[in-house]
């Protein structure tokens, strides 16, 4: 809502208005430019690694022994993807069903309460989830198979983190589907579930997909909760009970003491991480734009 022209012409005169506008422009350029400062700072720190080692050795080296000049990150890349995918396997269906519950099955109060609880869950710090995972979930998993800190623990904790994102976005998109779709389907003799499954969800699909894509990006970038429960051993996991180390966890574990090229390699992995998240983000945007055409 910008100002009506006449009002703007009257109130937008004088030196005070020009000075304020100049000040606000400076602030706005600063805040919207920060993202460039962040990405370029991290990328510049990665240059020594790119120059001396190069990207191909991230794949071709034997293992991750940075102090001995071996920089293979494949295991950690796979670790990141598998942990995030594992979280999505649980969180996406549960999130979408939660949204369906909020939209069609919940009573007036139970729906409101569940929505508030999801908002609270979204705000629970990752370190709190990590602490609970470490004291409660990990020992439970250890009873099934040692050591307990594992891919499974990491994915489970991440599930709780991204479920509210999926559920709240999907709910908003389902609520935006015109009422007439659902009523029409019921009028044609569809059952409640058939109407939802075959009419409402397909209509909301691009919006829901965007929510899922954003959730995957969050899972990929999440660090502390994963560091606490994943076990952090650099290996390609062959079962869900094995420890893994993700790319972001590796940065958090090693930046504190890394020197020279090792340090630069961590900034290189941070650059890879942020670029991956931004590409996923752009895909999400693109899918959302498809939504606008419907």
């Amino acid at each position: 809502m910008s100002w009506p022209q006449a009002a703007e012409r009257r109130a937008g005169q004088g030196a005070a208005d020009r000075w304020l506008a100049a000040l606000l422009w400076a602030a706005a350029l600063f805040s919207s430019g920060i993202v460039f400062v962040i990405v370029s700072t991290v990328a510049v720190e990665a240059i020594p690694f790119l120059r001396e080692i190069g990207l191909t050795r991230l794949v071709s080296d034997e293992g991750w022994y940075p102090t001995y000049g071996r920089f293979q990150m494949t295991a950690m890349l796979i670790g990141s993807l598998v942990v995030a995918a594992g979280a999505c396997v649980l969180a996406l269906p549960a999130g979408v069903v939660s949204a369906v519950y909020l939209a069609f099955y919940a009573g007036r109060w139970s729906g409101r309460i569940y929505q508030r609880l999801l908002e609270i869950l979204a705000g629970i710090p990752s370190v709190v989830l990590g602490f609970w995972g470490l004291t409660t979930v990990v020992p439970l998993i250890a009873k099934v198979e040692q050591p307990g800190t594992s891919l499974l623990a990491a994915s489970f904790v991440l599930t709780l983190m991204i479920l509210p994102t999926v559920a709240l976005i999907a709910f908003a998109r389902i609520a935006a589907v015109p009422d007439a779709y659902y009523r029409g389907a019921i009028g044609l003799g569809f059952s409640r579930w058939q109407a939802i499954r075959q009419v409402v969800l397909p209509a909301a699909r691009p919006g829901i997909a965007t929510g899922c894509i954003l959730a995957f990006a969050r899972a990929l970038g999440e660090t502390m909760a994963v560091v606490m429960v994943a076990g952090n051993i650099v290996q390609v996991p062959t079962s869900v009970f094995q420890p893994v180390r993700t790319l972001s966890a590796n940065i958090a574990l090693e930046v504190g003491y890394a020197m020279d090229v090792h340090r630069s390699s961590l900034f290189a992995s941070a650059t890879i991480l942020v670029l991956a998240v931004l590409v996923i983000f752009a895909v999400g945007r693109w899918v959302a734009r498809e939504d606008a055409h419907v």
Binding site: A28, S31, S32, G33, I34, V35, V37, I38, V39, T41, V42, E45, L214, A217, L220, G221, E222, T223, S248, I251, A252, V255, L266, F267, A270, L273, V274, V277, L278, F281
Partner: peptide, 29 residues
Amino acid sequence: RVMRTLLDVLAAVPSIVFGVFGYAFFALA
């Protein structure tokens, strides 16, 4: 539109990246 997109991108940056940025920029540079 451009400003909003840049701010959305900023919101999507993972927190560990903010961490290494702050370390390189505020703490060291």
